Amino acid sequence: MGRALRSEQFDPAEISMMHCVQRCVRRAYLAGVDPQTGKDYGFRREWIRRRMEALASVFGVDVLTYAILSNHMHLILRNRPDVVQAWSDQEVAIRWLRVFPGRRLEEHLAEPTENDVATLARDKERLAEIRHRLSDLSWFMRALSEPIARMANKQDECTGRFWEGRFKAQAIADEAGLLACAMYVDLNPVRAAMAETPDQAPHTSAYDRIKADQGDQIDSAAFDLVPVDTAEAGKTIRETPVEALKERRKKKHVNPSGKRIRRDGWLAPFRLGKKPASDPELSEGGVRASDKGFLDLDWGDYLKLLRWTAKQSDEGSGREVPEGMQSVLTRLGIDLSMWRDLVWNFKRYFGQSCCAGSPSAMGKFAESTGRHWSKGQRSVAQCFAA
């Protein structure tokens, strides 16, 4: 069975959650120490994290969890067409121009002006297409991957493909699949022996949330969503030397909006609130699409379960989750003795499947795409209570 079509997995016009994986094609590492050359590319992880953070401030996409490893990265994303529809035409225009400024005579001057924003906002047909793209996970991943590939190629002094191909997308079929996938993503560095615990695994969403609880703050990478005054921009270009303009833009790139935020401030909030599902919960901070959570579980309880699961590194099932952490798994129908196996062997159960979740949810997803069943649906049944 070939890989499912993107149109079968998600629709930018409908809210959906996807587990996305992008893998580097080269022998040289995406990040970390390359065993062939001895070069350490670990700093590229921060390139990727900051790019994700910047895109979270302009796209109608919530970043739920992520992990950046040596030669690939995992993200769980939720597209938010309801959020994009609530933005004004001017907001849509400035957000798009910040990421895709278009061809200009002077690339280092590619700052959207008030005139640029007004011109785009008047083009209703073009704007409708842009609204669609701002909640499209494929466009989000494109805006994330392409700049990283160009920067890495320039640094490596080479050309050609940097990524293995199009990113792998796997639909999250229900809350059970979301919880298991979130822990699988957060524990990837532990599984890869890059860290002993989630607390020691930088460039993961769990690490960011743990550090944020300890009061850690960072310079925000969010785009500045205020257009440049057209007249002032013209005056600056005429009177400022090109090298000075380049240097000014380089400094602004470090902290475009001048904000400092919690380390996890750009990620989606953890717990799903009690507001109606129809409420988009627009973010007022300008650093993420919305303030809507994604799991019916407190962060503290998730962290306890995550730390316990991280310690169960040896192969085998049959270890029941401690009593204080059992209620959420029981509610989701997960066999307590199989929880460790479901997370640590997530790839075994769901690696070839177009979706992840309970057997019933996987079956419903298969029906929605014209199939009779989803790969892995039968084998994962052993991880769920009858």
Rank of each mutant, 00 (worst) to 15 (best):
Q9D: 00
C158S: 15
D199A: 12
V190M: 03
T197N: 01
C158A: 14
A201P: 08
K39D: 13
N153Q: 14
V185E: 09
T309F: 06
C355M: 05
P269G: 10
A221K: 06
I148H: 02
Y41K: 06
W47T: 14
A152W: 15
M362W: 07
G265F: 15
R238N: 09
M362Y: 04
A192I: 03
N255Y: 01
E367A: 12
D296G: 06
I130Y: 15
G32R: 06
Y302Q: 05
P35A: 12
Q352R: 15
D11Y: 04
K274N: 07
A110V: 00
T65H: 10
N153C: 13
P202T: 09
A195G: 08
A143W: 03
W344L: 12
S290L: 10
T159L: 05
L5S: 13
H72W: 11
R371G: 00
T240Y: 14
I261P: 07
S360Q: 08
A118C: 01
S290R: 02
D229E: 06
G234M: 10
A193N: 12
K252E: 12
D335H: 00
L303H: 03
A244Q: 15
M362D: 06
A231Q: 05
Y29L: 12
A366C: 13
N115V: 09
P256K: 10
M52D: 02
G165L: 09
E53N: 04
T369G: 02
A192V: 04
V61P: 01
A171Q: 05
L144G: 00
A193V: 03
V117L: 08
K304S: 09
D116T: 13
K39M: 15
D174R: 07
D219Y: 10
L137V: 05
I334Q: 12
E107A: 13
V92W: 11
R6W: 04
W299P: 07
V343S: 02
Y184P: 01
